[in-house]
Write a protein that binds this DNA or RNA. Structure first.
Lengths: 202, 202
DNA sequence: AATTTATTTAATAGTTCTATTAAAAACGGG
DNA sequence: CCCGTTTTTAATAGAACTATTAAATAAATT
């Protein structure tokens, strides 16, 4: 891939994640990439195609981290999931809001993620195992009665909201990068405590 | 207020909450309001002023629901808060995403909410009481050690994320209005369970 | 070196959007 | 009913944005 092309991709990524699809123009992208505006169209034809490329790429990063570690017991699995999910999002802080934003605003983009999910059928597999694990723990009396969907939503809510609200948190409380990474570590531990204790683990 | 003016406000509200500031044009607003495009500017001068009116109005709805019931013990307070917050958002489902979206995308709008908050100094008061209540419960051994900010974030995460993800949830799982309101009730109860048990209450 | 191919640029067609203006229509009080 | 005020409309200036085209430049190939 030519340097110009990757420069454009990089600029587009930066701007789409920062300002969203609507508020980003191909002229802006060219300016950040340091090239002529027509080049954006030369390499990617349309703004929409360029966007879709970045959108699916970012979605795959998220999807790729949604894995269940084999040979772990339930507690270790959940613990490991929270660790890896937090870790991944710490390095991709803007992705959660970016994806949710574009999926909510533009219904026509939802099929893109449906396609990406059904392409990787392994995720259905993961969910089935996850579900089995939870039902198993409940029947053993290790955790309280809870639906798999609820436990999943609880964990995702607590983690994803942390990153969605992060720009507002750091702005409002005027936190620097050092304080923010400390905050994220701290929140991760608190999320674990709440979830573990909240379902009766320990 | 003239009917035309309120029609425009209503149309603007619908569109801004649905599509966001950028994707909504004054022409769209006029079309939905059933009037000439120039009338939007006649009544509100600029798109930005019209937006700000709706934005602050919606923010005040949220802020207004953030109250602490006097004469309730800690458990009842928290329970009541979750009830009223869920209730309010059930009738204003699009507000959380709308506000977060516009606050994240456009930093220049953050002062608006700072102003609205500092205008109602009572909220500082609420937070202080809330903080005292929690510290008190901890010292009494009624709940585990937890920072007030963490407990607050836990509750807000669980509630707000429910509403932010709602359009995706209902689309993806093809839920009708009836199922959705049942889902919201169900989530509310689950949030209570997780939070209460997760801090050691009961 | 000559020729083909790929990349880059400037120019621009064609939309759309915000905001204003001047004129027309509707309204209200005397 | 007349006249001043308010409301509404059509027209449009002016800016910005996407996408294309044709020409210019650079790179690669023979």
């Amino acid at each position: 891939m030519k340097k110009t092309e990757s420069d454009i991709l990089k600029a587009a990524e930066e701007l789409f994640l920062e300002k969203g699809y609507e508020a980003t123009s191909t002229t802006d992208i060219a300016k950040v990439a340091g090239c002529n505006q027509a080049l954006v169209h030369y390499y990617f034809r349309t703004k929409e195609k360029l966007f879709t490329k970045i959108f699916t790429e970012k979605f795959k990063i998220i999807l790729g981290s949604l894995k269940l570690e084999k040979d772990f017991d339930f507690r270790a699995s959940l613990n490991h999931f929270i660790d890896t999910y937090f870790e991944m999002l710490t390095h991709n802080r803007k992705i959660p809001f970016f994806l949710i934003n574009e999926l909510i605003m533009r219904e026509d983009r939802r099929p893109i993620i449906r396609a990406a999910i059904s392409q990787e059928m392994s995720y259905l597999q993961y969910y089935t195992e996850w579900d089995k694990m939870i039902k198993d723990e409940i029947s053993k009396g290790n955790i309280r009665q809870i639906e798999t969907m609820d436990l999943t939503l609880n964990v995702l809510s607590l983690i994803i909201f942390t990153f969605i609200s992060l720009p507002l948190y750091s702005d409002f409380f005027e936190k620097d990068e050092n304080e923010i990474s400390h905050y994220l570590q701290h929140r991760k531990e608190e999320v674990k405590k709440l979830v573990f204790q909240g379902i009766g683990l320990e």
